[in-house]
Write a protein that binds this DNA or RNA. Structure first.
Lengths: 198, 198, 198, 198
DNA sequence: AATGAATGAGATTTCATTCAT
DNA sequence: AATGAATGAAATCTCATTCAT
């Protein structure tokens, strides 16, 4: 029975904090180790190198988010008053915004490095954007919204969703972010023309 | 009479290109100088250091964008068929997206570093977000859209606008970006409930 | 009739100020030029290079000090109550301390770089220390003080003289330095055993 | 268990040698490292930067000197023929000059950078000058010397003490410095008017 | 197993000086 | 004649990584 690794979790936490606070490149191994309360060499026991730690963090947290979204969307049930897409959007936004409020670092970290890491992921790697596109396609198929370009509309949904969070982050909107779930949902439904389907 | 500066403009151009292509931190002074065809030290005659060059680039191009938006918005005229806000949004989006298509580097550079530099600007510095907020306030005042939270709705407009560009940038949507002007405008107007004002 | 050089004097003044304030090496040509209100290249019109400027400043001001001391010493007249050496010491100290109070930069500059430049001067170059040694030799010859090692006693005179100034400089003693002329003189005379000659 | 530091001591020794020999600024990190037989980066594991190394050297060696002086002064015993102050001065000068003769680098290093570093020390930091001032105050209190301004007289003692060393350093006086202990002591006692109290 | 030391490569920046206008 | 631009060389420092204990 091997003893559990002692430096792994603190390093991940320190990395999350420092990467978000100071940028991935600006946070050096020395700082990381100090923050985590371990040695600099410890990192190399658990990951190949710094870049691998970054990738691992990204992939793991992205998987969390994906699971969150998938759960929110697949468990959604249409109600008498509301089509499925409406419930799905609300649930998804609610789940994501709760994550933001509870673990802002995770959310911000993903935002922060998605652009840098976009090229490194395998091209068929499924990301939240894909979830949204599929969501829209399904709603069209169910005739809940008029036919439209799914990618284009997905970009709008994602944009509204993200920028609300950004505004809260920079203090342009009051937090917690969760209070804006209904607002965002309503706006999204307007963009999708829910209920206007032929 | 000293000789006229010969390295300044090439350095700015090289910075724009390399910062966008490889990231601000990954592009080193050596590379900048090589691209600009000058010595590394030349940079330090024109800017205090690399960071100052980044800031200068950001501020200058941001001013360009602000001028663009202001011009688009102030020259807009309401038509019989359309309220002023609709024309303003279309003009603004069109102007910005044309910039993106014609000088993608400028647009991408601003996108790229806005988060890093947000904190460095003086807190009362007027940024595009402020333009959008004012735009919405004015539309409310003119009774063209129902009363709403201007900052919240601004975040949505900005989000839709930006994410469309991001999707094009990463190949999720086809370019040129200008072809999406009308789509974005229509979606924005739906979010603002143009014409639904009581 | 050539026009008088315009940058020479300001550069010398700026050099004196900055060299004393920040150290000879820490004050760069750029800073010098800015302080002097001229171009960086101007320095090279008037001196071979930076080092030559330093040397020139040193030599010129040292000559001033030497002239000061020589004048003070040669114009001194013995009185009924006081032997010549006593008057000479008082006059010399008075002259030097007045310089300190009126042009502290000159005094401090000489102190500052004497160690660095000691090696560069021609070995027979006459410096204040030599003046003091000669002063003591003459006093011995005149039988005003008992025979002694002139260099050794000179080191003490110079040490007392300089350290008093240093204490004032660092606020360990109150200024102006001139108020300490009589004290230093009296102490010096005790060290020299004036009046104890056999 | 990491490996024990192997570069720290050699770096300190090299710094002492090179700083004294060529000046703090003229001795570069490369030269330091070469002399110490380690990499340039090693310096930065043990000190924040070059300046911190200089400061550390200064503070450490200054503490040595202070301990030396304190020991010399507190172990001094008055004799029938000599008041306490006389013995204290002789012991202190002897101890300090022995240090000079045995470890000239230490002594010269302190002399060399005292002016640059004076400002950096905390204002209440106790330096040799303070020891001398206290020495004089105590002698006055014991009625061994007439009342006088302790700081003023301290400046003279320190000046005589230091300048003797400086003269030896520059070859104006023969070495070893220790041969001048009695001379300096006698001169100091004359300045202090030992035995003239009352 | 785990540490802090050590390192080579390279980053940014400074400098005194020369150059082109 | 006088300037600010330009520059090569070198300075200081940082970094991710490897090493010896």
């Amino acid at each position: 029975m091997p003893r559990p690794p002692k430096a792994r979790a603190p390093l991940k936490q320190a990395a999350l904090e420092l990467f978000v606070e100071r940028g991935v490149h600006a946070a050096g191994i020395r700082e990381l180790a100090r923050h985590a309360g371990c040695s600099e060499a410890a990192l190399y026991r658990h990951w190949e190198n710094k870049e691998a730690l970054v990738r691992a963090l990204y992939v793991e947290h992205l998987a969390e988010v994906m699971a969150l979204l998938d759960a929110a969307i697949t468990t959604a049930k249409a109600a008498a008053s509301e089509p499925l897409i409406a419930v799905q959007v609300r649930q998804a936004v609610k789940a994501a915004y709760r994550l933001y409020d509870e673990q802002p670092l995770v959310f911000r970290f993903i935002l922060l490095i998605q652009h840098e890491l976009a090229k490194e992921l395998p091209p068929d790697y499924r990301v939240p954007n894909d979830v949204v596109i599929d969501l829209i396609k399904a709603a069209i198929a169910r005739n809940e919204i008029p036919p439209c370009d799914p990618a284009l509309h997905a970009s709008w949904l994602v944009g509204m969703f993200l920028e609300t969070a950004t505004f809260v982050l920079y203090g342009r909107l009051p937090g917690p972010l969760s209070q804006h779930v209904d607002g965002v949902t309503a706006a999204v439904l307007r963009v999708l023309r829910v209920g206007e389907a032929r």
